[in-house]
C-alpha cells in the first residue's frame, strides 16, 4: 500500500511520542511522582499508529485501560494527557478521570476504559450514529486479548455484523491479560478465527510491523467507509512493561522480553524507512529530539499545573441536576456552586 512521505513522518513522530511518553511515565512512576495506576503501551506503538494513520478527526475510537497510545495516535493533546495523569485541573478530564479514562470526544476519542470489554458495544453505537446520519465516519474499537473472551465483545461483533456497521475491531494481542496468556484463556487459541464466525473478514497480522498494520488497517477502514461493514484485525504485539506499573512481571521470561525488544517497532520502522530511501536518518533523529522535547514540555506543564479546586468534586456529574442533592441528607463538605 502506498504511503506518503508526510504520513511516514507523522507515523514515526506519533510512535516516538508514545514511546517517550510511556518511558517517561515508567521512570516518573518509579520515582513516586504519579498517583494511582498506569498501564503502559510501550512496545505496541505500531498498532495504534497504523490504524489512526487512516482516520480523520471526525472518526471515532474506543480504547482500553492501556489507552495512552490510542490517545496520542488520535491526536489528544500531550499536555492535557500528562496533566490528567498527574490529576491536575488542566488535565484532559479536569483531573476527574486519570490515566484509565482519558478522553477527548471532540477528537473522536471516546475514552480509555477501565472495564475490559467495555468498548465494543460503545463502538457499535458510534458506528450506528454514522450509519443513521449517513456520514462516512469510521469507528475503530481497540481491545486486548483479555477482552476477546468477554461477552460484550461477542455482542458487539454480532451487532456490527448484522447491522453492517462501519466499525473496525482491533484486538491487540500483547500476549498477556494481566498475568495470563491466551494459551491458557483463549479456547481454540485463534482469536482472529472467532470473528469469522460473525461473518466478517478477519486477519491476524504482525502488530510489531508498522507497515503490516498500516496496510491491513487501510483496507479495513476503506471497507467500512464504503459502507461494506466491519472487519476484525488481530494485531500480535507485545507490551514491554508490566500489566501496570509496579507489576513485578513474574509470569514471563527475560529471554522472551529480549526477543520482542529485538523486534521493536520503532527500530524496524527506522530500518525499513532508511533502507528503502523513504526517510533519512537525520530526519528520524530530528523527530526523536522533538518528541523528547514535547514530552519534557508536557511533564513540565503537568507538574506546574494547579490541583483541582475541591468544589469541582460536585461538577460534571450531570448536565443538569440540583447541586444540593449531590450530597444528600447532610451538609456538603465542599462549597456547592448552585
Amino acid at each position: 500500500m502506498e504511503i506518503s512521505r508526510d504520513k511516514l513522518l507523522w507515523a514515526y513522530e506519533r510512535m516516538r511520542l508514545i514511546r517517550e511518553f510511556e518511558d517517561r511515565l515508567h521512570t516518573d512512576f518509579a520515582a513516586g511522582k504519579i498517583p494511582g495506576f498506569v498501564h503502559l503501551y510501550a512496545g505496541e506503538e505500531a498498532v495504534a499508529t497504523g490504524l489512526c494513520a487512516h482516520l480523520r478527526d471526525d472518526d471515532f475510537i474506543t480504547s482500553t485501560h492501556r489507552g495512552h497510545g490510542h490517545c496520542i495516535a488520535k491526536g489528544v493533546d500531550l499536555r492535557e494527557m500528562m496533566a490528567e495523569i498527574y490529576g491536575k485541573a488542566t488535565g484532559a478530564c479536569k483531573g476527574k478521570g486519570g490515566s484509565m479514562h482519558i478522553a477527548d470526544v471532540n477528537k473522536g476519542m471516546l475514552g480509555a476504559n477501565g472495564i475490559v470489554g467495555g468498548g465494543p458495544p460503545l463502538a457499535c453505537g458510534a458506528g450506528l450514529t454514522a450509519k443513521l446520519k449517513g456520514t462516512d465516519q469510521v469507528t475503530v474499537c481497540f481491545f486486548g486479548d483479555g477482552a476477546s473472551n468477554q461477552g460484550t465483545t461477542f455482542e458487539g461483533l454480532n451487532l456490527a455484523g448484522i447491522w453492517k456497521l462501519p466499525v473496525v475491531f482491533v484486538c491487540e494481542n500483547n500476549g498477556y491479560a494481566e498475568t495470563t496468556s491466551p494459551q491458557y484463556s483463549v479456547s481454540g487459541q485463534d482469536i482472529a478465527a472467532r470473528a469469522r464466525g460473525f461473518g466478517m473478514p478477519s486477519i491476524a497480522i504482525d502488530g510489531l510491523d508498522f507497515f503490516a498494520v498500516y496496510e491491513a488497517a487501510g483496507e479495513a477502514i476503506a471497507r467500512a467507509r464504503r459502507g461494506e461493514g466491519p472487519t476484525f484485525i488481530e494485531a500480535q504485539t507485545y507490551r514491554y512493561y508490566g500489566h501496570f506499573e509496579g507489576d513485578s512481571i513474574r509470569y514471563r521470561t527475560r529471554e522472551e522480553e529480549e526477543h520482542y525488544r529485538s523486534l521493536d517497532c520503532l527500530y524496524r520502522f527506522r530500518q525499513t524507512a532508511i533502507a528503502q530511501g523513504l526517510l533519512t536518518e537525520a530526519e528520524l533523529d530530528e523527530i526523536d529530539a522533538r518528541a523528547r522535547a514535547a514530552i519534557d514540555d508536557a511533564v513540565r506543564f503537568a507538574a506546574e499545573s494547579p490541583m483541582p479546586d475541591p468544589a469541582e468534586l460536585l461538577t460534571d456529574v450531570y448536565v443538569e441536576y440540583p447541586m444540593a442533592a449531590l450530597w444528600p441528607f447532610q451538609e456538603a463538605a465542599v462549597p456547592v456552586h448552585r
Binding site: 460503545l122 463502538a123 457499535c124 453505537g125 458510534a126 450514529t129 458487539g156 454480532n158
Partner: peptide, 24 residues
C-alpha cells in the same frame, strides 16, 4: 429508526450509550 435488536442487552444498551455520546 425503530430498530429491532438481537437479545443481547449489553450489546444494544451499550450501543445506545455510544450513539448518545456521538450525536443521536
Amino acid at each position: 429508526r425503530v430498530r429491532d435488536t438481537p437479545i443481547t442487552e449489553s450489546g444494544f444498551v451499550g450501543a445506545g450509550v455510544g450513539a448518545a455520546a456521538t450525536g443521536l
